[in-house]
């Protein structure tokens, strides 16, 4: 399947390990990635809040360049990109007047117009069912030796379900299906669908850490060896801010956090240079040692 690949800001910068593992994994999952080069940030909800009309145009521009590749699917690897692009896409696809105005503006600055022919899908959705899932099972030949993995969905891949709609936002199943296909054991806990606090981690750190505590604490209590998330913002919060959570609560968590593509990558036998675990703040070594034992 040929898809336009939009990696977003984090995979391009602070979460390069997400980009490298996604690219290494894609051919084994039957995905041909056409990387979008001349695109920008989706605005991450911030431009939607600060300059909403600009947000719509920036996302229309990304969608237009995706459409120009000839692919009918724009693949994302971030919850926030997924929601922002899908929201803009619905606004444009279902309102011809709005689309005409935005397309005219795009053309005025030299961008191809957007006709509404692209669907935005997260990598998770492409491999949780159907052909992608069958390919995943073949790719994950090394398995995870029953490793106990806590799925953490985060918010903007589930809610609002009107705009996301892949699965029941209160009882999602896709990460669990993937963990099990890779030979791991999915650990269940209530906060797997809640917020990691990242959007306000700079402006309201204390409130954000209060949110971050729930999933990490519950995953630990459920006996997880590691957590996996489809969102690099959740990853940054869970991994990089975990030390601040340890400092503020006086507790030791040391919970390794994996990107979705890394979890599958481990089961598929990707190289260290593709998985790049050294870029994590919380060491992943205990997980890797368990697998080698």
């Amino acid at each position: 399947m040929r898809v336009a690949y939009y990696k977003g800001c984090l995979a391009a910068l602070s979460a390069k390990e997400l980009d490298s593992s996604t690219k290494a994994l894609a051919p084994r999952l039957g995905l041909e990635l056409v990387e979008l080069e001349s695109v920008t940030c989706c605005g991450a909800g911030d431009i939607h809040e600060a300059e909403p009309d600009y947000y719509l145009h920036l996302n229309a521009r990304i969608l237009a360049y995706a459409e120009a590749t000839g692919a009918d699917t724009l693949m994302t690897v971030c919850n926030v990109c997924t929601l922002n692009l899908r929201q803009a896409n619905f606004q444009l696809q279902k309102d011809e007047d709005l689309r005409a105005r935005v397309s005219a503006n795009l053309e005025a600055v030299g961008v191809p117009p957007y006709s509404g022919g692209v669907e935005v899908k997260h990598l998770l959705w492409l491999i949780a069912e159907g052909e992608g899932y069958e390919k995943l099972k073949q790719a994950a030949h090394k398995g995870l030796k029953g490793l106990r993995i806590a799925p953490f969905y985060g918010c903007q891949i589930l809610r609002p379900s009107k705009l996301l709609g892949f699965e029941d936002p209160d009882r999602p199943w896709s990460l669990e299906a993937i963990i099990e296909a890779c030979g791991g054991e999915a650990v269940d806990y209530p906060a797997k669908i809640k917020c990691c606090g990242f959007p306000i981690i700079q402006a309201r750190e204390e409130t954000a850490l209060g949110e971050l505590l729930q999933p990490i604490e519950q995953a630990m209590e459920a006996g997880a060896d590691a957590m996996v998330t489809p969102c690099p913002l959740c990853h940054l919060s869970l991994d990089a801010w975990q030390q601040k959570l340890e400092a503020s609560t006086g507790r030791a968590f040391q919970m390794p956090i994996l990107h979705l593509s890394q979890l599958i990558g481990v089961a598929a036998g990707l190289e260290d240079s593709e998985l790049k675990f050294k870029r994590h703040v919380v060491p992943v070594t205990p997980v890797l040692e368990k697998l080698e034992a």
């Binding site: 909403p52 009309d53 947000y55 719509l56 709005l98």
Partner: peptide, 29 residues
Amino acid sequence: ESRALFDLVKQQGRDGALGIVQGERGLAR
């Protein structure tokens, strides 16, 4: 292009809440 888009949309006066309200017709569908 993204700089030019910013300048262009700022001239069209759909800032503030209107920028979000304009998308509601499509989303309602």
